[in-house]
Design a protein around this nucleic acid. Structure first.
Lengths: 244, 244
DNA sequence: TGGTATTTGTCCGTATGTATC
DNA sequence: GGATACATACGGACAAATACC
């Protein structure tokens, strides 16, 4: 539940767009109209609108108005990131989701792990491998690394459920920023063993660097995706061209 | 050249971070310090800082300060998107960049093209295929679709050079927003013919939907990347966990 | 063609809240 | 408790682009 006023307004307008109350390509009510509706300053309205623009819901056109450019996903139900997370997707589609832990160890960062994760050498970490299923289809193999000094008392049982539940609710750790890098890599033996690749010899790899609100990078996760179901979304505003 | 004050301030602070004037994990000068340095309001400073945070340069910590979390790329020189564009990368590394047009036609959108591009059926478009080289290595095959009613008088010669130069400078079209979707797909005959895949049977595909500042989607581009050199960056703030 | 109203973009100043030190 | 630093919110002013008459 958001506390800030601009977040509430953002949420309300977003829901109206998703409910098609404001239609694709239509102009929203003017900022001043929202000012009277929500009884706020124009600045607060603008903050909400800027957030919506940043997430690809609307586009502001000076002198004209604010146009809706959101379109519901017509693509894969496994769509990831950007506007909608896998979690939201599972909720919306009422799909069955499960996780199987195939490795769970505690170890010390050496030079090799440092190169992969950029955790400092000598730090103690949890390392686990997990297979993630949607509708009983193995979609993703996760390699998770957590700093033990931030994430304490992790167990395989917790990893089988939701780690982020544990972080948020039990340890009261809040993630605020994350870097993600998508690459495509040749398959490993583990990939081949657990994922249904149908002859494809690559996987989509999302490397995820997660920071808590102290600015400490406490998690590195490499998610190796079955190519067939992989989809990664990005929205950019006032962007440079993608390729020269 | 940015006109707005907050953009200039954003640019200056960004350059200081990239020049390591403000170091990784160090706190920036406080907002009020910047207020006096740039002789502006705190609002304007905050706008610059929020932009930097959105692009992964800094992280704001209430009560503490604003921490630098930017690290220069230690990875591939072909790194794409997010913080640094391929163009900036080529500039920085002084690499040689070239394009070869292998197909250039004008055609009408039918049902099949509509499904791929989401251009309306019946619209006239330019369709071209281009191979893109870095240091004489074929990295990417582009399939570009442009609405002729927005992008007029395109030629193969222009496509061989920089289309965006033509758009920006000759046609005065400004792109403001873009959606990108990354997927991994089996290779086609064209991929195999032009890219050096070394036995890999997948390519990384970036689908790019580009809007001009009238809110018209005038370009759809599918860029098919050689997996070895592909890297796609994203930065997210106050994000949900990547996977449940 | 021109003038006026509308709408978004930028910028400023101020006040108050909240977290940290 | 007090000082510092970021977060939120309000209100006002003017600029720039557009729409309308």
């Amino acid at each position: 539940m958001p506390k800030a006023k601009y977040e509430k307004i953002y949420q309300i307008i977003k829901e109206r767009i998703e409910a098609n109350e404001y239609e694709y390509q239509q102009l929203l009510p003017s900022e001043n109209t929202f000012v009277t509706e929500f009884n706020s300053s124009r600045n607060t309205i603008r903050r909400a609108l800027v957030s919506l623009a940043n997430e690809g819901y609307v586009q502001s056109l000076q002198g004209k108005g604010v146009r809706v450019i959101y379109q519901p996903h017509r693509t894969s139900q496994y769509s990831l990131s950007g506007i909608e997370s896998l979690y939201e997707s599972t909720q919306r589609n009422q799909t069955i989701y499960s996780t199987k832990v195939i490795l769970f160890v505690k170890l010390i960062v050496d030079e090799k792990i440092h190169k992969r994760t950029s955790f400092p050498v000598g730090e103690e970490i949890y390392y686990m491998q997990r297979v993630r299923f949607l509708e009983n289809v193995p979609l993703i193999i996760d390699h998770n690394y957590f700093l033990t000094k931030v994430v304490s008392h992790l167990t395989a049982e917790i990893a089988e459920e939701s780690i982020y539940n544990y972080l948020e609710n039990t340890l009261d750790i809040h993630i605020t920023t994350a870097k993600r890098i998508v690459t495509v890599e040749p398959i490993t033996q583990i990939d081949e063993e657990y994922l249904q690749l149908d002859g494809l010899n690559c996987v989509a790899v999302v490397s995820n660097y997660t920071y808590n609100d102290d600015g400490v990078m406490f998690e590195f996760t490499q998610s190796r995706h079955s190519p067939k179901h992989f989809e990664f979304h990005q929205f950019a505003q006032r962007t440079r061209p993608y390729l020269v």
